[in-house]
Amino acid sequence: MNGIKILLITGVVFIAVYFFVRLRNSLFDLILLLLLVCAAVAFILFPEITNQLARNLGVGRGADLVFYTSIIIFWYVILKLYARLRKLEQIITTIVRKNALEQAEISKTIRDDS
């Protein structure tokens, strides 16, 4: 095992532990994480696998294949984050609106029909 492999595997393990601590609540996320980690470690230890996969799929090098798939995964993550942002925005809106409705000022100078 050479230096870069140790470095990469350590990185993957650290990230995995970090996510494991944060995502404990969702079984689906856990399984996905486990699969990804296993795949990552396998690819690091045996880079020939990615080359073989890439050739089968018609991509030149294994590294390219990994690059392309990461782009797709990143897009997915960005969309998920966006969805969460929108949800947060809706929650904030609800709170601000509730306050605005409760603290509405009703002018006494004109008619007060409430």
């Binding site: 601000v96 306050n99 605005a100 409705l101 509405a104 009703i106 002018s107 100078t109 004109i110």
Partner: peptide, 9 residues
Amino acid sequence: GITYSLRHE
């Protein structure tokens, strides 16, 4: 003399 005035924080 506007009737109602609301404000978002």
